[in-house]
Design a protein around this nucleic acid. Structure first.
Lengths: 193, 193
DNA sequence: ATAATTTCTTAACTTAAGTGAACGTTTTAA
DNA sequence: TTAAAACGTTCACTTAAGTTAAGAAATTAT
């Protein structure tokens, strides 16, 4: 299990056994059941997530309606806004499959980063990379129509379309579930002629 | 001029004179004329931007049409995707006002970061903060209609509405210029009753 | 200063998304 | 195992954005 993490990290920096032990000693490996809510609106959590297996989802609840904004799957990291801003969370995070998640506390991370400067470099590289990736995702969302976004999703994250309920996918694409159904029917009609 | 930068940085870390000199010696202060293109599609630049005064804009050109995806104004930093991914840029960056921009080369930054570990911490904090901020912006974009996005922009970045041409604002909001005109007329009608 | 270009707005028409409702299917819980 | 709830699709209707075109206003270049 830990090997998966260290294989991933080895792409960015090489870690000594001492450094690896420092990570392991944080005791961050967790098995999470489908449906578990990891973060609730209003909480000021300090927890960062890294998905080893499974899928977590972030969503707002507006007028009783869920608005899904992101899915994080294998080898993706997620630091909720409230952890950085130290203000109450405006959204929820929950687990949509039985998952194995690394959950680390910001205070712990800072402590370890203080001891091992290499971790600062690692975190910087990871968040710079994530920032750049997210910027591209945002750009693509802005310059695309809902239909283009859906087609784009089929290309880039085909797994999501299988493992995520339609109504969650719809709000992720910025539309209503009925519109996603219609849009899918439209595409199917086009490809048939 | 330099004071503006160091005042800003002092919010995150305290720098010694030696560290400040290291930054100054990079010779990164530039005066840029309105209309200057800083990055073209296809280029694999290594330049990072930090706006001290003025405004820069990133935009794609798709079928001859500009799609504006971001504006960066005073005290905002921007690292184009190509700098991180080391692949040719898919978008342009240009200056929409006479501006003073810090332009730094990634290689130089890495060299200086090697000498002064504190800079790694600084860069990590800045990019984590930026990532969190960007995530919120993306979330708000997804869960809002064009009209809500426009009203939101009036609240959050009223200056942009003054200093940016309508057609650039429109594509930033994910709609056509004609739709923005209509939307504004609609809002005006509502407020009058 | 004037001409050329770009920008902004308005309008009529088309296309697609939002809304409310119905209905069959699937999943969840008792 | 059944009842209840949630989910996905379809439909008719409404609302808003896309498109094409035209003209006024502002900006830029000569």
């Amino acid at each position: 299990m830990q090997d998966i993490l260290f294989d991933f990290l080895s792409k960015y920096v090489s870690l000594t056994d001492e450094e690896k032990n420092a990570i392991v000693s944080l005791d961050i490996f967790h098995s999470i059941k489908k449906g578990t809510v990891l973060l609730e609106e209003g909480q000021t959590s300090k927890e960062n997530y890294f998905v080893l297996k499974g899928c977590i989802r972030s969503y707002y609840v507006i007028n009783g309606e869920e608005k899904t904004t992101a899915f994080y799957t294998e080898m993706e990291a997620f630091t909720p806004h409230c952890v950085v801003s130290k203000t109450p969370s405006e959204y929820y995070v929950s687990c949509i499959e039985d998952s194995i998640i690394l959950i680390s506390n910001s205070d712990m991370v800072e402590e370890v980063n203080g001891k091992f400067p290499k971790f600062d470099t690692l975190c910087r590289i990871l968040s710079e990379e994530l920032l750049a990736k997210q910027q591209i995702d945002f750009d693509e969302f802005k310059i695309s129509s809902p239909e283009q976004r859906y087609l784009n999703l089929i290309q880039k994250r085909p797994d999501l379309i299988q493992r995520v309920p339609q109504h969650q996918l719809a709000s992720y694409l910025g539309i209503k579930p009925q519109s996603l159904s219609r849009l899918r029917a439209r595409i199917l009609g086009k490809s048939k002629g």
